Simulated scan of single mutants.
Amino acid sequence: MPNSASFFPHAPLSEAPSVSIIALCHNHAPFLREALDSILAQTYPHLEVWLVDDASTDGSPDILREYAARHPTWHLLLLPENVGNCRAFNTALLQSEGELVIDFATDDVLLPARVAQQVAQFQAADTVVGMVYSNCELIDEAGHSLGLHHRPNGPSQLRPAPASGWVFAEVLRRYFISTPTMMMRRACLQSLGGYDDTLAYEDFDFWVRASRDWQFLYLDEVTTRKRKHPRSMSAKAYQRHDPYLASTIRVCTKALALARTPAERAALAVRLRWELRQAVRRHRYAEARALSQLLGQTTRLTLLDRALAAWSKLLE
Rank of each mutant, 00 (worst) to 15 (best):
P160W: 05
A161P: 08
P162R: 10
S164T: 12
G165C: 06
W166S: 15
A169P: 05
A169D: 13
A169C: 11
V171L: 09
V171T: 08
L172S: 10
R173I: 06
P180M: 11
P180S: 12
P180R: 08
P180Y: 05
T181A: 02
T181D: 11
M182K: 14
M182W: 00
M183C: 13
M184Q: 10
A187Y: 03
L189N: 05
S191T: 03
S191R: 03
S191Y: 11
L192Y: 09
G193N: 13
G193R: 12
D197M: 08
T198V: 10
T198S: 15
A200G: 12
Y201H: 14
F204G: 00
F206P: 00
F206M: 14
W207Y: 15
W207S: 04
R212A: 13
R212F: 08
D213E: 11
L217H: 13
L219V: 05
L219Y: 05
V222F: 05
V222C: 10
R225V: 08
K228I: 15
K228Q: 15
K228H: 15
H229T: 02
A235G: 12
K236W: 04
K236F: 00
K236H: 14
K236T: 00
Y238R: 12
R240K: 15
R240C: 12
D242S: 15
P243H: 11
Y244C: 07
Y244T: 13
Y244K: 09
L245D: 03
A246W: 01
A246M: 04
I249M: 02
R250Y: 04
R250L: 14
A255W: 02
L256V: 01
L256W: 04
A257M: 07
P262R: 07
A263Y: 07
A266E: 12
A266H: 06
L268K: 04
A269H: 09
R271Y: 06
L272A: 09
L272P: 08
L272H: 09
W274P: 00
E275Q: 14
E275L: 15
